[in-house]
Nucleic acid binder design. Structure first.
Lengths: 273, 273
DNA sequence: CGAAGGGTTGAGCCCCTTCAATCTTAGTGG
DNA sequence: CCACTAAGATTGAAGGGGCTCAACCCTTCG
């Protein structure tokens, strides 16, 4: 089931030529962003950094639309996003689906698999993705062998939970205009934090149908609302590309306060407050 | 700010007379249900159990409606529910609020405060509550000193996250009838798991206004929907008391599958599948 | 150049909201 | 024991935000 794809991963790394011959080196390079991400919140010793870099993993490419984990599976691994976008979703009776979270480079998807045996939702690739597949047992052992690593991973799952809470409020209480503006703001901040775009301008990683599933509206109404936001001069769009013309006003309309993202201090999230 | 209330706590304990003189004994008695809860998922040694029981804490009574933590606070403690009900909620622009979670005896509220510095939501008492207030530093130290304890607490927060995901799907995709039936089913299972009621009959811990805030509907529509569920013979109500006449049918209508609650095996959740 | 996926727009409808009134129940004080 | 009160539950009527259905358009790609 797991496929080694040694030549296709983190697109901005230029070490492809050496990968096949330097397996250890490949390992160190691929998980390095993971170490950086975790260490933005917890201080690591060199030994701990090395332990993270020594985690066993398999590189894998997912095609757009491919399901990686399905509701009810008992996954034996977690995946670290190296490139591309994935979503987590649930399908309810009647067949409609709710997107629960969108993940991008640097995110650890489904870290709850470290401890929860059975997955309660699907994980699907939005775009072609490169992921590092890490056995749950390795993550569990590492977490408890090195307390700071465990702390950092626990922290990640707590932030996950915080975003879920904001999403409950988003779909539960806000009208379409506010709801969509809010998710546009969230993407802006998170994409910039991940080094994938500037807050003022980015490529939306999803279609309007998918956006609709994320905010609990119909695609038709998402479209009308996006058009309206454009007409009001808050954003400009051309297909998937989004430009935020008036960040402050959009954030106001969106009722957006980035503190729920719990970004490390110094991140762009600060500007949104 | 923290008040010792030595005579009012876990109502089914009959040791009130000895509390003032046997501080150590009081401690052990009050956190015992906490040990039991955690050990349903992780195996503890005697030393670990003792370490949990030795956690410092303060007993406190909250009056109905009282806010315990507010959005933006930097809480230095977590609270273990000994009796009563609390909710976590967020208030959005415009003033409407979304209830994010309902907590009952045995639940550890706001365990994310162990690592996240700033609270992103409020915690409010629904009814009069007895809680054990535990310093976050004590929980953090314990978690990393005793890996199984850390594992159990991490587990608790992951289950929290799983419930949040289900709530996103609930408010995002389901119609009023399904949504309300779903939350009634969730309460039934959780109340029974907490030993507070039978699945077939329980006391709803909230008013229809509060229920409305939990499911993202108006109180008026919640009322109409409850009345309709009653007319259809799925439930019977008299004020807050709920009796489920046809569990299987209600669960079907609710699109309810309790696996998202990740209850320990052997819990009543099994029957809902 | 044709097909396919996704974006855009219109018309009509319905679920849920809003506003407002009435009813029920529990609690209080005389 | 009963009036009084307040909180919460219930019901009605009317309106609107978002849905459904369906058509059309635009871009990309083979």
């Amino acid at each position: 089931m797991l496929v080694l794809v040694p030549l296709l991963f983190a697109r901005d790394l230029v070490l492809a030529g050496t990968l096949r011959t330097h397996r250890v080196n490949q390992t160190r390079v691929s998980l390095a962003p993971f170490v950086e991400r975790l260490s933005s919140r917890v201080e690591f010793s060199h030994a701990e950094e090395d332990a993270i870099l020594a985690l066993p993993y398999t590189l894998r490419t997912l095609e757009a639309g491919e399901h990686f984990i399905r509701d009810g599976d008992k996954p034996l691994h977690c995946c670290l996003m190296l490139d591309g976008f994935t979503v987590r979703d649930k399908v309810v009776a009647g067949g409609s689906r709710q997107i629960l979270a969108v993940h991008m480079r640097g995110d650890m998807v489904d870290l709850q698999n470290v401890l929860l045996e059975r997955s309660d939702h699907n994980v699907q690739a939005l775009t072609r993705c490169e992921i590092a597949v890490i056995p749950r047992t390795a993550l569990e052992e590492l977490s408890f062998a090195h307390a700071p690593v465990g702390k950092a991973l626990w922290y990640e799952t707590l932030v996950d939970g915080s975003v879920f809470r904001e999403w409950i409020a988003n779909v539960g209480q806000r009208d379409a205009r506010t709801r969509i503006a809010h998710i546009l703001c969230e993407f802006a901040i998170r994409l910039e934090a991940a080094g994938l775009a500037k807050t003022s301008s980015y490529e939306l990683p999803m279609t309007q149908d998918q956006l609709a599933d994320a905010v609990g509206l119909t695609p038709v109404h998402v479209n009308r609302t996006l058009m309206a936001l454009g007409r009001e001069g808050l954003i400009e769009r051309r297909r998937r590309s989004v430009r935020i013309d008036d960040w402050k006003e959009l954030a106001r309309v969106a009722d957006f306060d980035p503190s729920y993202l719990h970004l490390p201090t110094g991140s762009p999230g600060a500007k949104g407050a």
